[in-house]
Write a protein that binds this DNA or RNA. Structure first.
Lengths: 143, 143
DNA sequence: GCGCCTATTGAAAAACTTTTACAATAAGGA
DNA sequence: TCCTTATTGTAAAAGTTTTTCAATAGGCGC
């Protein structure tokens, strides 16, 4: 189901800022902060407001349409969420984020943590940082 | 090695705010934000400044003396770092954080992610959220 | 396609968080 | 104890996120 139908079914409207934000996120490889999204819309000559970007991101995130990614430098970026798993590895050089599938491998760890700590595990935060293939090649060339 | 020796050897002084912040962190079960630390020091009648708390936390974190924990509601808390692993599970009810040992179990996942994404994995962010044994019992009693 | 209802927007301001500047203070080696 | 300078605290600046509210525009019914 596309995001517009989902919004409508949930009782929300398809407004211009919402379209702009989603379009921008769908066309980027790197997670984008609220401010970065706002600045890019401005740069495109759009009449956009930072407040709407914040509101839109909050809404999209609550509906599971976008995922949050912690950037190496500590800021919080957003990406369109694909169905199912939402774990990312982020390139420390070019910031490109790629999803990986690791849910099954986490199950073992979850059980071990539960028996080790006696907590009931409800949720987790998992992200990897590293260097993407392209940036690996670039550093090889310059070396 | 205790933190005071480590600070001294790294060329830093053992100042009053640094002692206050470390003492407070050592005596708490839940991760503390900069503001929370400042407010507690104030409540204890100490003459403290929020700026120094920020500076102290930044220093301690850079020296590996404290660890950062993402709270369920999104804020960033600090805890004294024990040697070695620094992965936490945080109670969604009482916010208590407990370390768990899962480095080995992550190795398999790291390798899988590397072969799946072709990234070179350099670092990771792993945290669990759940309900601690005490809070599990409390909810059982009230049920 | 038109009009109405109200969700949503944008501008401004407020609230909150973090950083910077700089004179006063205090840590710790001589 | 004295001296040097790292560190502090106050104040201000910078940056981020939220709130307020009148104006706008989305989309349902006709």
């Amino acid at each position: 189901m596309d995001w517009q139908k989902l919004l409508t079914q949930a009782g929300y409207r398809i407004s211009k800022p919402r379209k702009q934000v989603m379009q921008l996120l769908e066309n980027t490889q790197t997670p984008q902060t609220a401010l970065a999204i706002y600045q890019q819309l401005k740069a495109q000559g759009e009449r956009a407001s930072l407040v709407s970007v914040y509101r839109t991101l909050e809404l999209f995130a609550s509906l599971g349409l976008i995922s949050m990614v912690y950037e190496p430098e500590g800021s919080l970026g957003y990406l369109p969420a694909s169905a199912g798993h939402h774990h990312y590895i982020v390139c420390q050089v070019c910031h490109r984020a790629v999803e990986f599938n690791g849910t099954e491998d986490l199950d073992g760890l979850v059980h071990q943590v539960e028996s080790q700590t006696l907590f009931a595990v409800k949720d987790h935060l998992l992200q990897f940082f590293g260097v993407c293939p392209k940036c690996q090649n670039k550093s090889k060339e310059s070396a």
